[in-house]
Design a protein around this nucleic acid. Structure first.
Lengths: 166, 166
DNA sequence: CTTGAACCTCAATTAAGGTTGAGGTGATAT
DNA sequence: ATATCACCTCAACCTTAATTGAGGTTCAAG
């Protein structure tokens, strides 16, 4: 019947996915995708690989690392065909990660805004810069100081406003 | 007078900023911060460095690269003190970048959502996966297909839905 | 029969953002 | 006086995600 041009060469995959040949090698090497060989030892990819590369690219744009993408792809039953169900599962999972990243950035932006005029740039004082502050806990905003103030420590100890003080 | 414990050792800077000593070396090497030396050849940092490290960390959380941060810090007049004005300028600048990244991720997420049930996983068809689609141009969403459909190419040429077709 | 395209392998290199380690100095505490 | 601590330098190494290059094969066309 009028069915399928069977498998794809690496060149075809590259052209159609927009991913370089070397990257395809790389992904195969890392175990994200697989291929078989023809009699000339050339890679042949089932068309399915295009979907997998779609998944890879989308996940990467969402900030997911290859390692994780690999694991996710590995959960696909026979490691062969990405079904709608698979895709749905993965995209939901990544959606959550995306949401988290978005929320973090929004929190950061809002803090940035509230800090623009505050002058609390000292790492001792500013939530934004504080390594122990995960951005989301903690209440009161940073201190507002009059313009051009030079910051001095109260002493070498009592110099925190949100950090160590009880 | 009751003024300033003068300069900070690298250990103090490290403790107070939460940044490792090696990272501080690294930043200095890269020209993001600077120090002078005491008679024992130990680095002494003006307290100002804490602010600069704040700026670095905040910017990094916003996805700004060190290279760019360096350039931004270099615009600070005498490369000495980050004033409120400086900070305001930088934070506004980065706010815009943050906004952009946030918007991109939101667009991605929304597309992900609308794609969850769509089945358009083929790289030829899905905007999300499409390398030529910057995610934001283009109108109509991806194609919805009934469950479990196997995708076949129309032919080796006319197989795009949003990409090449006029 | 030779040229070129498309593919192959394997190793090295890139870039960012650091970390780790070896070997050495100087001040302080016991 | 000797141990320890905090610091110094310089070089090597690490991870992620690839890219680049050298050298070799296969196949079809002229």
């Amino acid at each position: 019947m009028n069915k399928i041009k069977t498998d794809l060469s690496i060149g075809e995959v590259s052209k159609r996915s927009g991913v370089t040949i070397s990257s395809i090698h790389f992904y195969e090497n890392k175990g994200l995708i697989c291929s078989h060989r023809n009699s000339s030892n050339h890679r042949r990819f089932s068309r399915d690989v295009l979907r997998k590369i779609s998944v890879i690219k989308i996940a990467q744009k969402s900030g997911v690392q290859l390692k994780e993408i690999k694991e996710a792809l590995a959960t696909i039953p026979d490691n062969k065909t990405v079904t709608l169900e698979d895709w749905s599962r993965l995209s939901k999972q990544w959606h959550n990660q995306l949401d988290e990243r978005i929320n973090q950035l929004i929190a950061l932006r809002d803090n940035l805004d509230s800090c623009i005029g505050c002058g609390c740039l000292s790492i001792d004082r500013c939530r934004l810069a504080n390594p122990y502050d995960t951005l989301g806990d903690l209440g009161p905003g940073p201190h507002l100081k009059p313009d051009g103030v030079e910051y001095e420590d109260a002493s070498s100890e009592g110099d925190t406003c949100l950090t160590k003080s009880s």
